[in-house]
Design a protein around this nucleic acid. Structure first.
Length: 440
RNA sequence: CGGGGUAUGGCGCAGUCUGGUAGCGCAUCUGCUUUGGGAGCAGAGGGUCGCAGGUUCGAAUCCUGCUGCCCCGACCA
């Protein structure tokens, strides 16, 4: 992408409403624009990151055996009356009426709808297990939206729903999502620690929150230091092997880890000084096993091997990709701006032409740009007629992991500079070496 | 939902107390000079002062009502 043809509305000053660093940087880098309290437009740069995150989430859901579909954002009130949550959900649910005065709502979550879809088609235990998910916009009318997309009213959520014949099967489904979540966050360069959680309004008796550590996190968390170095489950782990999955779950939950609401000070204090990690955290995922809470009232039943009808055992599993964008910035930034992990970066390379109009730099940049693009690398080519300082500041701000800097001085010796945004390390390489570096 | 604050050009702000027809920095546009860490000079454009009433010869400024947004607390992907 040529920057001169892109839409990147950078702000030099920080809008006053932005309190936390991720919100400030998202506004300054032209990633989002607030349209109303807790409602944001995603500008091109922000959208590229959101899509990268979505794709990682999708790949790991698919790997764990979940199947993608897409449910609507607008739902019927009748569906929610069946489960009893229409009244119970309260003011967080945005209720609307259509032209026929039919009561509708903007979905805050999809347990009812997925259960309705399930019961319409599935009759036999032979069709289980089943795990269906979608990535769709949700609306929860938060009392007090804040922190930009970290706590917004409209937000993107990946929600998966598992269906099993019995509790043991549901447990296995839960464990598979548990493993998928560990992989998902690890691929984004995040250390997400599963912590036992309250089930809240979703209900049920088994639940974990996935918390990433960040100094600006909303909640206080406590955990065993071993969690900082636990190995991520490999891509080819045996998702269908119940014992392997249970073993992984047990390994990841046997040590102390809790948010402040679930904190047990005496258990935590039993750890040695060096084992105690007390930090701030951001919730990026939440998984629940809730049995027949919805299948019972909504009559989602299957015929078991014994010929009897049984309500299915369900679980639900959520990740907020839009919140993750902010969480990733909270965990990856410095004074100059954002530092994207490579897997979610909007562009992999920022190519800066320090002297637009100079025949040599123009030609060198055009050549590098074409060859890197041809190799399938996302390159942002800063071909604007700006001074070098402005280009450095822009690339630092938007956090592109690698900067390739082409100026007359280096080019006179056949060299361009490659700078690593995270480490600040600079190398002087020939254009051919640059191509090899990034295409090898 | 309780408490507090705020609303003036794209962004950040002054002007409001004491009424006289709107200003500064950044950004934008034009020209010249510049060009390895957010350039300099000269010129230009852009604002129903949140909305609706009212007081007054005259309202950004005073009065009344409303709305948006932000912050602090209790709740949440």
């Amino acid at each position: 992408m040529r920057l001169s043809r892109f839409f990147l509305p950078i702000l030099r000053e920080t809008p006053k409403e932005a309190e936390i660093v991720s919100h400030r940087l998202m506004l300054r880098a032209g990633m989002v624009r607030q349209e109303s309290a807790g409602i944001y437009a995603w500008l091109p740069l922000g959208l590229r990151v959101l899509r990268k995150i979505e794709e990682i989430v999708r790949e790991e859901q698919n790997r764990a055996g979940a199947i993608e579909l897409l449910m609507p954002v607008i739902q019927s009130a009748d569906l929610w009356r069946e489960s009893g949550r229409y009244e119970a959900y309260g003011k967080e649910m945005l209720r609307i009426a259509d032209r026929h005065e039919r009561e509708m709502l903007f979905g805050p979550t999809n347990e009812e709808m997925i259960t309705e879809i399930f019961r319409a088609y599935v009759r036999s235990y032979k069709d289980l297990p089943l795990n269906l998910y979608h990535i769709q916009w949700k609306f929860r009318d938060e009392v007090r939206p804040r922190f930009g997309v970290m706590r917004s009213r409209e937000f993107l959520m990946k929600d998966a729903y598992s269906f099993d014949l019995d509790a043991a099967g549901a447990r296995h489904s839960y464990n598979k999502m548990f493993a998928a979540y560990l992989r998902t966050f690890a691929r984004m360069g995040l250390k997400a620690i599963p912590m036992r959680a309250d089930t809240g309004p979703i209900g049920g008796d088994l639940s974990h929150e996935f918390i990433i550590l960040a100094s600006t996190g909303e909640s206080e968390v406590f955990c065993h230091s071993d969690y900082l170095d636990m190995p991520t489950p490999p891509a080819d782990i045996a998702f269908d092997d119940r014992e392997v999955m249970q073993g992984l779950f047990d390994e990841w939950t046997k040590r102390y880890a809790a948010t402040s609401e679930m904190h047990d000070a005496s258990a935590f204090d039993a750890l040695s000084e060096s084992q105690r990690v007390s930090a701030r955290g951001i919730e990026v995922g939440h998984i629940f096993y809730f049995g027949t809470k919805y299948s019972q009232p909504m009559r989602a039943v299957v015929n078991g091997p014994d010929g009897k009808e049984t309500p299915v055992q369900m679980g639900s599993y959520g990740i907020g990709p839009s919140r993750l964008v902010a969480a990733l910035i909270e965990a990856n930034h410095d004074d100059a701006g954002i530092i994207w992990p490579e897997s979610v970066a909007p562009f992999t390379i920022g190519l800066a032409n320090l002297k637009v109009g100079d025949a040599a730099t123009d030609a060198a940049c055009a050549d590098l740009y074409a060859r890197l693009e041809k190799a399938g690398i996302d390159v942002l080519y800063d071909d604007r007629d700006e001074r070098p300082g402005a280009k450095f500041a822009t690339l630092d701000l938007i956090g592109v992991p690698h900067q390739v800097i082409v100026g007359p001085k280096g080019l006179a010796e056949g060299k361009v500079e490659v700078k690593n945004r995270r480490t600040g390390a600079k190398e002087s390489l020939s254009p051919d070496e640059v191509i090899n570096r990034f295409t090898a």
